[in-house]
Simulated assay, not measured.
Amino acid sequence: MLNRHILFYIGDLGGGGAERVMLNLLQNLDRNKYQLTLLLHSEKGAFYKKIPSDIQKVIVCWKTGKIHFLYRIYQLGNAIKKLNPDLVVSFRTASNIAVSRAKFLTRFRAGIILREGTNTISWLKIKTKSFFLPIRKLEVKIFYSLADKIIANSDGIKNDLVINFKINSNIIHTIYNPIDFEGITKAIRQSDNSPYTKQEHEKIILAIGRLDPPKAYQDMISAFSIIRSVIPSRLLILGQGSLESEIREQIKKSQVEDFVKLHGFVNNPWVYLVNADVFLSTSHWEGFPNALIEAMACGVPPVATDCDFGPREIIHDGIDGFLTPVGDIKYIADRVIELLQDDELRSRLAENAKNRVHAFEISTIIQEYETLFDEVLLSSSKRDETSLAY
């Protein structure tokens, strides 16, 4: 099965976790087996310039507004027909629904795999008015069920799709997000200096993620106010998003503006990680947090909320990090303080964290993706042969 044509589809290559996973796949899939094309709606995004040069990029500009809804779906389907791939692999919930609609309406021949990395039920609740929620749930059920396979990036995501959307579990496969240890090491070596100056006796707490509601930065700022009252420390937050102004306002109201820094999106977060003392995540929901496993790969012990989904599949509480109840500000602060005050504990958890995440090494995860791709490609070929016979 040589040089089968796989089309990857996502709206844009912004700086999020799904985009990073897609970029890792584009960089590492076997070119002796696959011809790769990337379909986007925009050239914008932090990762766009990192797309490998051998990959064909196709931009389909969408018109905005509800009146153009069906036109956009037909436009997407016709673009896929023209490119004539053997397999379409879609990332992100909105893109997944769009590509399934396009296949239903335009009947392009390629098989489809939907990769879901979001707590879908929680995502719908913040994106949809309560009256329309049952309709949106039905929409996900119908269009996700049209896929040949669905990739969930955690068992929690898989269970969410089965329980809340009644999707057949047999078409859903859990494949965790990959870690490129070699790439991280190279990125760290390429930077000669730490991006920040660490004061004597000062501890650094690092957070990475979009400045959006699921990350619950309001809890993080509240917890840091407690931590700072006990231990000289700074909180560095890497990421950009819709809530930046609200977060800045809370930082000011909490009177910690001298000790909290919003760095925005950074291309090389690992040089921040290797100099951090603790990684902190206060999310109310997740899919499978890339930043968490990357922090552990850099030997930074994590404190993360035991939210749906992901952290409990990564962290063994008290062994390679700490899990905390969601929204429990005092408990979160206490666990961070415990780590910062106990050098031996912090060192032990850091070493265990590095060992834990070797299970997500990129070569292992890429092989899992390729195995699933080959399965769907073989099944699609048999369908095509059957159709020709008739």
Rank of each mutant, 00 (worst) to 15 (best):
F69I: 14
Y71D: 14
Y71L: 07
R72N: 15
R72S: 15
I73L: 05
I73E: 10
I73F: 04
Y74T: 13
Y74V: 14
Y74H: 14
Q75L: 12
L76D: 11
L76Q: 09
G77V: 07
G77S: 07
G77E: 07
N78E: 15
N78I: 15
N78H: 15
I80N: 02
K81Q: 09
K81P: 05
K81Y: 06
K81C: 07
K82C: 13
N84K: 11
P85A: 11
P85T: 12
D86M: 03
L87D: 13
V88Q: 03
V88H: 01
V88F: 05
V88N: 04
V89Y: 02
S90W: 00
F91S: 01
R92S: 11
T93E: 09
T93G: 03
A94H: 08
S95E: 04
S95F: 01
A98S: 14
V99A: 04
S100W: 00
R101S: 09
A102F: 01
K103D: 10
K103M: 05
F104H: 13
F104Y: 14
T106F: 00
R107D: 15
R107A: 15
F108M: 04
A110Q: 06
G111S: 10
G111T: 12
I112N: 04
I113G: 01
I113L: 03
L114E: 14
R115Y: 07
T118K: 00
T118G: 04
T118E: 09
T118N: 10
T120E: 02
I121E: 10
I121L: 09
I121S: 12
S122Q: 15
S122N: 15
W123T: 13
W123S: 12
K125Y: 08
K125Q: 15
I126F: 08
K127R: 13
S130Y: 05
S130M: 04
L133E: 04
L133F: 02
L133S: 04
L133P: 03
P134S: 07
P134M: 03
P134L: 02
I135F: 03
I135H: 00
I135K: 01
R136C: 04
R136H: 07
K137S: 06
K137V: 04
E139Y: 08
V140G: 04
K141M: 14
I142C: 01
I142Y: 08
F143G: 03
F143H: 06
Y144N: 05
A147Q: 05
D148N: 12
I151P: 02
A152F: 06
N153A: 06
S154Q: 07
D155W: 13
G156T: 13
G156H: 05
G156L: 03
N159V: 13
D160I: 03
D160K: 00
L161Y: 07
L161E: 08
L161F: 06
L161C: 07
V162Y: 10
V162W: 08
V162F: 10
I163A: 12
I163Q: 12
I163Y: 11
N164K: 06
K166F: 10
K166P: 05
K166C: 09
I167V: 14
I167C: 06
I167Q: 05
N168V: 13
S169T: 08
S169L: 00
I171K: 08
I172L: 01
I172A: 05
I172Q: 02
I172P: 02
I172R: 01
